[in-house]
Amino acid sequence: MTHATSMGLDSRKLAFWTFIGSECLLFGSLISTYLVYKGQSVVGPYPHEILNIPVTSLSTFDLLASSLWMVLALAAVQRGDMKWAKIWLLGVAIGGLIFLGFQVYEFTSFVHEGLTLQRNLFGASFFLLTGTHGAHVAVGVIWMLTLWVQALRGRLGPQNAITVEIAGLYWHFVDVVWIIIFTLVYLLQ
């Protein structure tokens, strides 16, 4: 049900933008802590010994690609092409799952190499930052699957494309945060 709003912008979308603003401060605090504690660990493993740029580039590429699937999913929903909408929505979810798979692989191999939460400041701030991001991806995957199930049941269409649009906002935001983390944590060691 649509109301005329004072700003001419859908209220849910506006709320979501304020939520993203809030999330910026959350990730900002986590990233700042990571940077402040860079080089402060008194024991290894240190970032340059352990971070695997080639592998993480792959997962980064996968997450970037999923943002493209998201754009295509929204476009499909908006023009009422529900066949492709379902495909692209599932694609986004799978892209997210692949990313999470990479992260599980990364975390377990780090633990095998001796980097744990408790080991040093690098471990604590790295796991908490990337883990928080991973949790956001996981929520996004559940959201995409929910939309996909909705589409399968025929309950998604151009009339409620706004719900897909908001999910897309979330997904792109999580993607952008990852680009920042990838740059600051992995590339600029």
Binding site: G21, S22, L25, S29, L117, L128
Partner: peptide, 23 residues
Amino acid sequence: ITAFPVITVALVFLLFDRTFGTN
């Protein structure tokens, strides 16, 4: 909405220090 995420992070660090032995 801008101040509470910051204390959230500070509290998570403290929680982890207390519960999971981070530093």
